Simulated assay, not measured.
Amino acid sequence: MGRSIQINTTSLDSFEGLHQAIRGSHVEVTQLGRGKFRGSLSHVGIGDFSLSIGSFSVGVRTQRIATDDRLVIGMLLSASERVTHWSFDMLPGDVLIMPPSTEHDGSFHGAAAYAAIRLDLAEVTSLFAGEPRLSDPATWCQKNRYRADSLTGLIATQRIRQIVPCLARQQASISDELADFWKRSIIDATAATIIDALPAENRGPVPQAMQLVRNVEHYLDTAGSRPVHISEICAQFNVSRRSLHRAFYDMLGLGPVTFLRRKRLCAIHSALRQNTPATATIGEIAMQHGFIELGRFSHYYRSLFGEYPSETLHASKRMSRGIDRRRALATG
């Protein structure tokens, strides 16, 4: 059964528009900075799961009341001046944990942008299976701030900004599997910062690395053409990202994220050779396989296959026309 993605973006001309700064939560907002308020607010809803992205031009204070029973994972995307949440100073890329039924207050001393994910606490067990600390709901019941590594934070903030315009291009009903992939992709933008900030695991060598890699390959083959997120792999085999990464590097010389990407690129390559774009564009096929930014997809594709997607498609069409002509001559 398909599931719809609900997306809306609104331009704001006053601080009152931020009262639903996090979809499903009521937030009290007070303008602190002088000047005309300008901003925007975008919401993505996939079932009860939501992503909110907001920006504003002047300083504000925000307060969330304690009656909200959902977990909120926030990320500061940009800030012109100091930002604090509770007693935590925030820098762009930092991740904030707002537990369920907890009052929250934040102070933005100037223009800023943020992202906030709102989900049921019970979902963390499946979303982070294989990560002992993150799959434990108790981990998310304490206020916390995770400091972002500069590179990780930059990548995460860029990626999460790309998700809204990407999903806006396919607002029609999508499969439950693809909806789950996009949920995991949204979560992953914040999870990378959290995992980097946690102490390294001390588990010794990865046992049976070859078997683990083979099991992952079999799972991907069984999944068919649908995109599979790295967190789904970790959940399926109850293994942490660090352990999975070590196993893939030991066996293949590349990480599991790169491996999954190349598997998806191969699936697209096969689709283009089969002339699938007769009913769908190259962009639509790339989106169906989990690629957010089409320019980056094209770069990955050319790096792997030595040609652009359009070249694969055109070569396939020429080959099909040649086969058709030969068949016509043989039967003529």
Rank of each mutant, 00 (worst) to 15 (best):
W86I: 00
W86T: 02
F88D: 14
F88R: 06
F88L: 00
M90C: 13
M90A: 10
M90W: 13
L91R: 13
L91H: 12
P92D: 03
P92W: 11
D94C: 02
D94F: 07
D94I: 04
V95R: 07
V95F: 04
V95D: 01
V95N: 08
L96P: 04
M98V: 15
M98I: 14
M98T: 14
P100R: 05
T102E: 05
E103K: 01
E103Y: 06
H104A: 12
D105M: 05
G106D: 12
G106S: 14
S107Y: 12
S107Q: 14
F108Y: 15
F108C: 07
F108V: 01
F108E: 09
G110K: 02
A111N: 03
A112F: 14
A112K: 04
A112Q: 04
A113S: 15
A113H: 03
A113Q: 14
A113T: 13
Y114F: 13
Y114V: 07
Y114G: 01
Y114I: 10
A115P: 04
A116Y: 14
A116I: 00
R118G: 07
R118N: 02
L119M: 15
D120R: 06
D120A: 04
L121A: 03
A122E: 15
E123W: 15
E123C: 04
V124T: 11
T125G: 00
S126D: 14
L127G: 00
L127N: 07
F128D: 02
A129R: 12
A129M: 01
G130V: 07
G130R: 05
G130K: 05
E131R: 01
P132T: 08
L134I: 07
L134V: 08
S135V: 00
P137M: 06
P137Q: 06
A138Y: 10
T139C: 08
T139K: 00
T139H: 14
C141M: 15
C141D: 10
Q142W: 09
Q142N: 11
K143E: 11
N144Q: 14
R145I: 15
Y146M: 09
Y146E: 07
R147G: 06
A148V: 03
D149Q: 10
D149H: 09
S150Y: 08
L151W: 13
L151S: 09
T152C: 05
T152I: 13
G153H: 08
L154Q: 14
I155W: 11
I155K: 10
A156N: 10
T157G: 02
Q158K: 12
R159C: 03
R159H: 13
R161I: 03
Q162W: 05
Q162K: 11
Q162M: 11
I163W: 09
